[in-house]
């Protein structure tokens, strides 16, 4: 009598057609070799399936955003770096020259708001944040 070999695993996984399933089931009633083989691979299958599911560590998805931004920053043109430097210098001067002025916080908040607006309107960045549309 020939044995079913690797079809036993497919039988276990429900990956055989109905006719083959019936044939294997009938064969198993009279074949100790195939029954033993089926028991062995069934045990191996169950210990792998019983391995604990590991939760996704926090920060992976934000990490993807961060790496995208790092890549964008790496290819930032020189004029953009210069503009940022000028903005930073102006902000620093504003804070140093007029410390304690009531509206310095307001100016900082305004700069932040403008930056956020720019990020939102930037097609490259907004594409990262927004849903992906199909072709």
């Amino acid at each position: 009598m020939s044995h079913w070999g690797d079809r036993l695993g497919a039988y276990l996984d429900g990956e055989v057609d109905e006719q083959t399933r019936t044939l294997i089931a009938e064969h198993l009633t009279g074949c100790g070799v195939c029954r033993s083989e089926l028991a062995d691979i069934s045990w191996a299958r169950s210990v792998v399936r019983d391995l604990p599911i590991i939760e996704l560590p926090p920060g992976i998805v934000p990490g993807v955003f961060a790496s995208r931004r790092r890549r964008r920053r790496a290819f930032r043109p020189a004029w953009a770096w210069a503009a940022s430097a000028v903005t930073a210098a102006a902000l620093t001067l504003g804070l140093v020259i007029a410390p304690g002025q009531a509206d310095s916080t307001f100016e900082l908040g305004s700069l932040v708001d403008r930056h956020v607006a720019r990020v939102v309107l930037d097609p490259g960045i907004s594409a990262i944040r927004g849903p992906v549309s199909g072709p």
Partner: peptide, 10 residues
């Protein structure tokens, strides 16, 4: 591969 992999695990 699945069958032989499980056999090796056992």
């Amino acid at each position: 591969r699945i069958h032989r992999g499980r056999r090796m695990l056992k």
